[in-house]
Design a protein around this nucleic acid. Structure first.
Lengths: 157, 157
DNA sequence: ACGGTATCGTTGCATTTGCAACGATGTCAA
DNA sequence: TTGACATCGTTGCAAATGCAACGATACCGT
């Protein structure tokens, strides 16, 4: 008679796991560095991109609403981690750049991120690769709003 | 040189996948049945439990803040899907019960949930089991606030 | 050159969220 | 019994969120 076992329902399980993992990571840097998850995402993408990046670009790459990116950027600017400038080629665009302080902050957070990541991998063990692939398949819901494929990004590991 | 590749960072990937999957499911019933994700979770747990359930119990089982459960329950009550009563053994507790309308609603949603679940499994293919295990490992962050182990639940598949 | 349309980033707004505080009830030991 | 402490559910509140609308700028066909 009982009907539906939520505990085995994938959307539920994924969302619980995601919440736990995110909280676990956020706890480590929220106190220490005073930034939020959206802010961290913007910083990380700015750092990875290396150069000036528009709000739209972050929005598309990082799976955050435009307004979320905009507000995160505003907070980061006020905190002195990010500088906003007008793109002279296309004056609708905003150029987001890491300041010196921003680069320092990232440099301090990245080791924390890497170590947390390593913990997760350890917990996953040999299934980590399979897990990665699974996430990829699930995340490819529908063809999103892709970027004009400017240029490939630089990865380093 | 860029440092950190967010695109390979598990907390990020998981949270993106979770958001996509949840949105995908929610889209199917938000319009049709007019309930939100927290409300769906409460309904699902009530249905699975079969009998009266306290707010605290939902809170512990379903990974939602007390206040979130409380508000979802209030909305469900107002919509006529749930009845709230006072537990006479312990008058601090609230007894949440599905009304007839509530049971009907669940009966209509469950097939949708099952079909969505089946789609996800199909997308995952043979790695589904591995994925399940991985989620479980990740979700076991720290020993949570467990329930007094009243009785095991009834599963049906 | 001009007008219609598309894109970018910000902002207003209603809703949701998490957290802490609260009143009410229950428990337990002195 | 009494008083200190724990637990349950609700509520207040500040912050975060998604969405739509907006002004500004760019693009494109005529």
């Amino acid at each position: 008679m009982g009907g539906f076992d939520l505990a085995k329902f994938l959307p539920y399980r994924i969302s619980v796991a995601a919440a736990r993992v995110s909280r676990g990571f956020a706890k480590r840097y929220r106190t220490e560095f005073g930034i939020s998850i959206p802010e961290w995402r913007v910083l990380a993408h700015l750092s990875a991109a290396g150069g000036p990046v528009s709000v739209r670009e972050v929005h598309a790459r990082v799976d955050m609403d435009k307004s979320k990116v905009s507000r995160a950027a505003a907070r980061l600017e006020q905190a002195g981690y990010v500088a906003k400038a007008e793109n002279s080629d296309d004056r609708r665009l905003v150029q987001l750049t890491l300041t010196e302080a921003g680069r320092d902050l990232v440099a301090r957070i990245v080791p924390v991120a890497r170590s947390y990541h390593a913990e997760l991998l350890a917990r996953l063990g040999p299934e980590a690769d399979s897990f990665r692939r699974a996430l990829e398949r699930l995340a490819t819901e529908e063809e999103e709003d892709r970027l004009p494929e400017k240029e490939a990004f630089v990865h380093d590991d």
